[in-house]
Amino acid sequence: MAADGEGAQMMIWLGALALYLLFRLWYDNWRGPMKPAEVEAFMTALTARAATDHESANNAELRDTIRSFLDNDDGREFVMLNLVKIAREAADPVTGAMTDGRVLLQRYSKPFIKALFARGGHPAYVARPAGGYVDAWGPGVPADPGWSIVGLMRYRSRRDMAALVLDPRFAAIHPYKIASTPLTFSFPTSPMLRLFVGPRLWVGLAIALGAALMQLTFSH
């Protein structure tokens, strides 16, 4: 009986280890930085879309910025900072009916978050501004436009971002994003200091806790 109990406990911890390894296989980038051929293929596809896509794809300066970001891929995760102003009301791109801007944005954001999650990404932080600018100076700094949302989106890699940009599933719903957000700023960031526990740690702790509770159950 003791041997059976020890075997069951061993299986519990081996299962927990396997589960955590599966999580890391999904969450981490194991393919390294983008290769030059991948970057070239992406830029060719992005340029081909410029004739029919929204303003960003037609902006040569933005395309150059994206290319530089991909050319300098370090293979690591990054966090996209998004400042978004949501329209109070906007015309539905399909029906033309005036619709709450948040409703229109959700028609884009919900499918996008699912696709982001499938590629190891997720929202890291989303908040509403609690007030106007308390610090803003320098030549050319615009007035506070009244931002609606501040969002930090974690991407597993720059390759995953590129794949999401070209995902054909978003062609039909991207007009909802354009209609609902008259003003937005987005740029990638690399973490310098973290004072919060990331998923690599808390998922591991949660799995270990579950395994420990199962072990206690089998031992009684």
Results as ranks from 00 to 15, higher is better:
D4T: 08
D4F: 07
D4I: 11
L14R: 10
G15A: 07
L17A: 13
L17R: 04
L17K: 03
L17F: 07
L19W: 11
L21T: 05
L21R: 09
L22D: 04
F23W: 13
L25N: 00
W26M: 05
Y27W: 10
G32C: 09
M34K: 02
K35F: 02
P36C: 06
A41E: 06
F42I: 01
T44W: 00
T44K: 02
A48E: 03
A50F: 01
A50Y: 00
A50K: 01
A50N: 01
A50M: 00
D53G: 01
E55W: 10
E55I: 08
E55G: 00
S56K: 00
N59Y: 03
A60F: 02
A60R: 03
E61C: 00
L62Q: 11
D64F: 02
I66Q: 01
I66G: 00
S68T: 07
S68L: 05
S68C: 01
L70K: 01
N72I: 00
D73K: 04
D73P: 07
R76F: 02
R76A: 09
F78M: 11
M80Y: 04
L81Q: 11
L83A: 12
D92L: 14
P93I: 07
T95R: 08
A97I: 15
M98N: 12
T99A: 14
D100A: 15
R102H: 15
V103I: 15
Q106A: 15
Y108T: 13
I113N: 12
I113H: 09
K114A: 15
A115N: 11
A115W: 13
A115I: 14
A115S: 15
L116K: 02
F117Q: 14
F117I: 13
R119H: 13
R119G: 08
R119S: 08
G120K: 09
Y133M: 10
V134A: 10
D135T: 14
G138I: 10
G146E: 10
G146V: 12
I149P: 09
V150W: 11
S157Y: 09
D160N: 12
A162V: 05
A162G: 03
A163D: 12
L164N: 06
V165T: 12
V165N: 07
D167Q: 09
D167F: 11
P168M: 01
F170P: 02
A171D: 07
A172T: 08
I178W: 03
A179C: 06
T181Q: 14
T184C: 05
S190T: 13
L193G: 02
R194A: 04
F196H: 05
V197I: 13
R200Q: 10
V203P: 03
L205M: 14
I207D: 04
L209E: 04
L209K: 00
G210M: 12
G210S: 09
A211M: 00
L213Q: 05
T217R: 10
T217L: 12
S219D: 09
H220G: 15
H220D: 11
